[in-house]
Nucleic acid binder design. Structure first.
Lengths: 351, 351
DNA sequence: CGCCTGTGGTGCACCGATTTACCACGTAGG
DNA sequence: CCTACGTGGTAAATCGGTGCACCACAGGCG
């Protein structure tokens, strides 16, 4: 009695394998594989027996085994930056992620989230690790930067990548962009000019990122189209506190603006507060416009006029593009809605 | 010349394997494995040669191969709910995720993000798939619900899990919770009572979730400690619009409250706006308190008094607990800071 | 000298799937 | 009768690591 009478199965992890399913269905493992992948020829009767066996054992192919054998991880990566200059806390990020997931999950693709902390992580090492471990088949990059080296890095690493937003140098990387340059800006400028504003200022995002750069260019350009010049164009971190400081400086000027456009809703709200604290009224004395379209904007006083962006759609588009790059067939064209101006209560004719 | 003169290497994916490294270092693959895992005995001289070879080829062990062989995916899952009732858009989510990553990334663990869409996904099927594919070694669950069946489901599936927040039924699942029940509530009640408020209302989160339930209990309890009764306790979705509606109803009452506590900062901001729109002043006529500690709260008028929560720490604690469950040694105790009342400008003595 | 022990590795089975090559069995055509 | 072919599968190699069993060799000791 030293050896037990059931040396049948070691039962490693306890979970059934394809062999267990095959045994139960009375076929070979290869047959099971074929049924579940639609490859090879298996009679319908046998196929049904196999499916039934799999159901009974509640078996699903082991992801690691597939990844190893087929050299496809069936997962993509997403890199978000954690940086004081980035609107990382933006609620939009969650919608963006939901958009990505909405494309991935029907295809059983996984989403690997990675936070890049500038200053703490070395960019080269960070991305090399991601590529070399082969945990993901492709990657979605955000926060397109001025002088971004990641496009070249990614192609050197052989990791398919999609950049969200306009790239610094076109051609080096695939990307999706709903801001053909600075959409929403034109509408906003038209709106303000139409109200009669002469002195319009733009407290926009930092110099390091492509998006705010393009927006500033579009801002200046559109004013020029109207035969005007900007009151001022300011580049500053995506921070309410910094927005407030700049607003104070603007108000202290000799000839303050009658309308201020901010890089984000959060900045705009901080700006409004600063204006009001200075004893001025929004929109009576100064009009304010934000950027993003947070729900919260409806609940400040006055309700914030803003440029609505569509984070969910952006996520969908990025994921769809990456999957296409990976050879997956993605039927939908994934429409990318352009940012649209939502006029609420914070804009009015100048005094 | 039909066959090329270099039939050496098929070069599957192009990436080097452990054998390439071994060949370059003049050792067996097993030796390489030992060096990189610190197992077995390899002389320092040989080890250095191997490391050098790996560096030269910029090789890293293939994640899928390791996962298959060791039956550990070196990744954990995170499930976030997408539900109208959930403050999913909460900025706190991103901090929470950052906290998780701060524990995972030093250990080269991956984070797999999954969005659960109630109504669209079947809970049972959703979690079964996650477990059976064995892509993750454990899972972090959020949004503890009343009557939550996931604790049992997880243990049935054999997937180690950590719940963030107090569980509905204790004992069924591991969890981390910084709200020993309703921390922050007591402070808030004390604060308001200390200011002289007699009629305090609580517009809190939905009935389905454990957190708001516990908060309501704590609210009532603490008032009782002071020998008082709540003006009213309301359960409502985490939505600014709903908060506004309830606020309107409260104001229309015969004897309206002099202070209102809201389930989130967003709700509180919407509440303030409603109060102001009704011609009343905050905090002169009615005091308002939020829950979360959004930066934005500093920039509304008046600055919002709120209960600061620490999403980053929560993420760290959850990840640390899960890794411990997985047998990983996590040195730090991971201190979980209790929510703390931050008094800003939206609270004052009653009129 | 023979034996034991420790050092520094090697060799090979194995994890759980996929995939290629091949085979058994009819059946039809020449 | 022999061959060709289509059907419905099986067997085995393979992906890239890990880890156990084992082994060669040198040195120490009685």
């Amino acid at each position: 009695m030293t050896t037990p009478t059931t040396p049948r199965k070691p039962r490693g992890s306890g979970r059934p394998t394809i062999s267990d399913v095959a045994a139960l269905a009375g076929v070979s493992p290869g047959a099971v594989s074929k049924v579940f992948n639609g490859t090879g020829r298996i009679s319908e009767a046998t196929a049904e027996r196999i499916r039934e066996a799999a159901r009974k054992l509640s078996w699903r192919p082991n992801a690691a085994a597939i990844a190893l054998r087929t050299a496809r991880a069936q997962a993509i990566g997403l890199v978000l930056s954690s940086d004081t200059k980035v609107p990382g806390v933006g609620a939009g990020n969650m919608d963006f992620i939901s958009g990505i997931e909405s494309v991935l999950s029907p295809r059983e693709y996984g989403l690997l989230l990675n936070i890049f902390i500038s200053g703490q992580h070395d960019e080269n090492h960070f991305y090399r690790t991601l590529a070399e471990r082969q945990r993901m088949d492709g990657i979605i990059l955000t926060n397109s930067m001025v002088g971004d080296t990641r496009p070249e890095l990614m192609s050197r690493l052989g990791l398919p990548a999609v950049l969200v937003g306009a790239p610094w140098k076109p051609g080096a990387i695939e990307y999706v962009d709903a801001d053909p340059p600075g959409a929403g800006i034109a509408e906003t400028v038209d709106h303000l000019v139409g109200l009669g504003h002469e002195r319009i200022a733009f407290v926009s995002g930092p110099k390091d990122f492509v998006l705010p750069v393009l927006r500033r260019e579009a801002f200046v350009q559109r004013l020029a189209d109207h035969g005007r010049q900007p009151h001022s164009v300011i580049a500053v971190e995506y921070s309410p506190a910094r927005a407030a400081e700049e607003t104070t400086a603007l108000l202290a000027g000799a000839n303050p603006p009658t309308a201020i456009l901010y890089g984000t809703d959060t900045m705009a709200i901080a700006g409004m507060r600063t204006i009001q604290a200075a004893g001025l009224r929004v929109p009576d004395d100064i009009s304010v416009v934000g950027f993003e379209g947070l729900t919260l904007g409806e609940w400040v006083d006055p309700p914030l006029t803003t440029v609505q962006r569509f984070a969910f759609q952006r996520g969908r588009a990025a994921a769809a593009k990456l999957l296409t790059l990976l050879g997956e067939t993605v039927e939908e064209p994934v429409p990318l809605e352009r940012p649209a101006l939502v006029v609420r209560g914070s804009t009015a004719p100048p005094p």
